[in-house]
Write a protein that binds this DNA or RNA. Structure first.
Lengths: 213, 213
DNA sequence: TCTTCAATAGATATAAATACTTAGTCATTT
DNA sequence: AAATGACTAAGTATTTATATCTATTGAAGA
């Protein structure tokens, strides 16, 4: 019987290697690629056409959502399982809507992860227990859509990172050599797009939402 | 030959279990305890007296620094290796000063982790390559001490968490039923203690510094 | 008892952020 | 050619945050 080929995408080498070890020690699986970021994962998926893509959706430089969409295009036969620290059902839902077949949080067990791979490879869908336990929240929040982080422009992302560093609008303006007013407009647009109240909640969202910029 | 007994402390079950699997598959090691938080780790260390404690220093409810100190007291024979996503040498230095014998980032390889365990168990010290590469920074920042997060009071921590949620001082005051002025004083003291400039940098520090509150 | 410190809260200022509106330029797309 | 969207920037107004300084209370410790 053919082994299930797996591509692992996680920005932490230690995590990639331990997972690789675990799966390669199971005769049912074969890890054919380890990737440190989303771009590499897309490239490798294109070349190796893995059965399963295990993707940490908190990688730098691209959101897991974007990456999942692109992997589906370059390798439609690959089935994607999102791995995340986030137990909010809304993120799982979003991931599944984009085309992932599974969603597992880092609070899940190793057994669940293996089960997820087998189920998804067999054509099914898999959501870990932790998310299922929060599922009522998902139903209740049916129409409460996630802030669309992809709507942010390059300039806005650049400014968010300066805000994170604790820089004031005045300092940001000086650094980017633009008007203070412009910076204020950017900040306002950012908060509006992400439906946030102030810089503190912005930084918290950016740090912990299912994304890194 | 006696196996090296290991206690694993990490708030993510998936990480604990995969590490446990990796080490238990190596005849040189035996995982004798898996702990989800610092308090549990201290309890288990007291009971099991492991040779090695692998501790994620980003666990909720207590900093890895505090936990390491307490584990040294309840089980002086145990040698501690800190695991962290942070590659700033200052954190490694702080961890070693407290009494840990090793420090490994999540960007390290599995091989390095194994080497760290063996070296530390043999009585040596181990710092991963990534930190070593940044060592010049450590030397240059010799006297630049880390903000003392342990100096924060309960009330201050409570307020920090409300700030993270995006609440204004006015909202916080109403919620805690104290004066707006008091909240402002707390915020001021928090920024002063942590040597930060504003709420945005505060949230970023709390989210990404080697600690969770 | 004396000291220290956390928590409370006042006054007074300034600095910064946020809300809302309008508008010009430039590049891309339809 | 027209529409769209990103980036720029202005005005005006209000709300928050931050800096200092002072001061009382209560609890914990020396």
């Amino acid at each position: 019987m053919e082994k299930i080929s797996v591509l692992i995408a996680d920005d932490h080498k230690l995590i990639r290697e331990t997972w690789s070890f675990v799966l390669n020690n199971d005769p049912r699986f074969s890890v054919i690629a380890e990737c440190a970021d989303a771009y590499e994962a897309i490239e490798q998926a294109k070349v190796t056409k893995p059965n399963i893509v295990l993707m940490d959706i908190n990688m730098p430089s691209m959101t897991g959502f974007e990456a999942a969409e692109k992997i589906r295009k370059v390798s439609p036969s690959s089935r994607i399982i999102g791995i995340s620290i986030h137990s909010q059902p809304a993120y799982a839902k979003k991931m599944l809507q984009i085309g992932a077949k599974g969603y597992v949080t880092k609070n899940s067990s190793k057994k669940e992860m293996i089960e997820a791979i087998l189920t998804v490879h067999a054509g099914g869908k898999y959501i870990c227990e932790e998310i299922k336990n929060n599922i009522s929240e998902l139903v209740l929040e049916e129409n409460k859509d996630l802030p669309n982080i992809n709507a942010l422009t390059e300039r806005e992302i650049q400014i968010i990172n300066l805000i994170k560093d604790g820089q004031s609008s005045k300092e940001i303006a000086a650094q980017l050599d633009i008007s203070l007013k412009t910076v204020e407009v950017h900040r306002h647009n950012i908060l509006k797009k992400l439906k946030l109240k102030n810089s503190a909640s912005l930084v918290n969202f950016i740090n912990s939402a299912a994304t890194n910029l």
